[in-house]
């Protein structure tokens, strides 16, 4: 069931917002309090929502055109001058097109660049495989010094941006195109390296990140109605991941199911497996993109087709908990 102490941080409103929109609005707010914040984009400012900042602070917004490699290294240069660069583009370009620049210009010298990528996962929808980042978290997670955060909703996005603004070092923030339910209210607090347990149960552990947390929460509620109570954890902080919370829950339930809009290789599912295989081996089932490229389609169609919609999660739990 939903944890008592969690109720005060859950939103009671029935609203939806995309995490990219929440990011864009938050960035424009932060711009007011710190003139060292600069924003970089590659001809996608309307889509990444950095256009809100650009309109307010044109002198601190730099469009690099379609040149992601240049943007990432230039962001590093700005960071050496004491600026706090937020560099945005789609997830596919931020991590694959500019992979070496992020690694060598930003992560290796541990420069204070915030890479906030939008349009991650197959939930991008109609644009299809070329624009759906399914390996971005895997790539970023493998870079030393890089932290990787995948906020669940608009509220968590705002809190994450606040936290990474205070944190001095490179970050990769995984944002989404589509609207998703606002799960948390303003009392919610985000900490790098900390998960949030939303529901308490002992039959299985569900761990999710990004907008899939809202789907996973719905699945957990459905299971509860059937008398199957699960631990349900929102793990926005994919790196560093909250090992303590994962191990504690796994000890209780003995079965862990991860849910993510990302290839099951290298993302949240892998991070959870790494922790458990070393510290407390239990069975882990990874829901998400099963090592295949994305496709065109509506987000809802794709999520169902790729097997991490609510019904798939419920079915997976039902079929795998001990009788």
């Amino acid at each position: 069931m939903i944890k008592q102490d969690i109720k005060k941080i859950l939103s009671s409103e029935d609203e939806k917002i995309s995490t990219r929109e929440a990011y864009g609005r938050k960035l424009a707010e932060l711009g007011e309090i710190d003139k060292n914040i600069v924003v970089l984009d590659c001809d996608l400012s309307k889509s990444t929502r950095t256009a809100i900042f650009a309109k307010k602070f044109p002198e601190r917004f730099f469009n690099f055109g379609l040149a992601e490699a240049n943007m990432m290294s230039a962001a590093a240069g700005l960071a050496t001058m004491g600026k706090i660069p937020f560099a945005s583009t789609f997830g596919v370009f931020a991590t694959k097109r500019a992979c070496d620049q992020v690694s060598i210009s930003i992560a290796y010298p541990r420069l204070n660049v915030k890479i906030c990528a939008t349009h991650t996962g197959i939930s991008v929808g109609e644009d299809g495989a070329t624009h759906q980042a399914i390996e971005d978290a895997a790539i970023m997670r493998s870079f030393p010094n890089m932290i990787v955060i995948s906020p669940a909703d608009g509220t968590e996005t705002r809190k994450v941006i606040d936290e990474i603004y205070k944190y001095n070092g490179p970050c990769y923030i995984r944002l989404c195109r589509g609207n998703s339910p606002v799960l948390f209210n303003d009392n919610y607090e985000f900490k790098i390296g900390r998960g949030v347990k939303i529901m308490d149960g002992d039959k299985a552990t569900l761990i999710s990140a990004g907008f899939t947390t809202s789907i996973t929460l719905e699945a957990a509620k459905t299971l509860e109605e059937e008398g199957i109570e699960v631990d349900m954890i929102n793990m926005a902080s994919i790196k560093p991941v909250d090992s303590e919370m994962i191990i504690e829950s796994a000890k209780k339930t003995g079965l862990v199911i991860t849910v993510e809009d990302h290839n099951v290789i290298g993302g949240l599912g892998s991070a959870v497996c790494e922790v458990l295989s070393e510290k407390y081996p239990v069975r882990v089932i990874r829901l998400g993109v099963q090592d295949k490229f994305g496709s065109s389609g509506s987000p809802a169609e794709l999520i169902k087709a790729y097997g991490f919609d609510k019904d798939s999660i419920v079915k997976t739990v039902r079929e795998n908990i001990p009788a």
Binding site: V38, A74, G77, M81, Q101
Partner: peptide, 14 residues
């Protein structure tokens, strides 16, 4: 190839 881009960032920051 990266150093000139980094320098562009430094020049903008300056």
């Amino acid at each position: 190839g990266q150093g000139l881009s980094c320098s562009v960032g430094m020049a903008l920051g300056a």
